[in-house]
Amino acid sequence: MPIPRFDYFAPRTVDEAVNLLAQAGPDGRVMAGGTDLLVKIRFRVIHPAAIVGLKKIEGLERISFSRNKGLTIGATALLADVAASSPVRRYYPGVAQAADQTANVQVRNMGTVVGNLCNASPSADNAPTLLALGARVRITGPGGQRSMSLEDFFRGPGMTALEPGEIVTAVTVPLPPPRSATAYLSLSARAKLDCSAVGVGVMLALDDRDRCKDLRIFVGACAPIPVRAGGAEQVLIGEKLTDSTVEQAALEAAKATQPIDDVRASADYRYKMATVLTIRAIMDARKRALRKKN
């Protein structure tokens, strides 16, 4: 099946890209790595008339970190580069790990973290961890620049808060709180490197008495967007993390989901796994947070 026809542009600046998108109107599409976009075009899911490639825009591939600003991942930073970046591995091991577990070598050498988010698949493997860490997206469009929390960014399968002509230029992640850790666990039929049927990401911070000081839980692939398990968080915040409190929270987490049957798993299974993975993810994060002394 050949790929249907479209025009292609490779702007050098973000402004140029925004202008090109504006000119293209609703038939225009942004492309970072193209690993989602080209597959969708090939399978006739979408039919863009113009593609605006971002890879020639200088600086967008950058991954930068500072203690006060936190982490910035540019729109064309490759999954492979995020996974290998030393500040990411050091300060955001969960972000590096999620990027490293996405797809396979080839796709990680083409695809981007930002593309994974903009694609807005409910099962996007990079979303839960970044959501749990309170990431924000930076956006440039015909009306100028703005930023928003990643939590507000997702609107439905394949749908985001982007207005026509807007481009995400980066995702930013604040410095995680002290004595915190993230964990992301996902399930699929094959051992590894596969689109997930269920995924749970958590960020857990402990107080000096090892109680849960802060907790953010997001469940992927179990609703139209990765969902926050606020009820579960409330069960644990301020509490000790025991087998029974964590299990109680995990049962709440599953309630936040609206799973469906599809080719990867049934709704019942997803619902159940949301609980199992939430328990494991919290316990995993707890273990690692406990290693960090005040």
Partner: peptide, 27 residues
């Protein structure tokens, strides 16, 4: 396959393995 799933089309692009079926020639 043409959808990035099989790896039979793998080539090196500027020193990194990519799927040539998901790479536009213009890029």
């Amino acid at each position: 396959c043409g959808s990035g799933d099989c790896g039979a089309c793998t080539v090196m692009l500027d020193g990194r393995a990519v799927s040539s079926c998901l790479t536009l020639a213009v890029e």
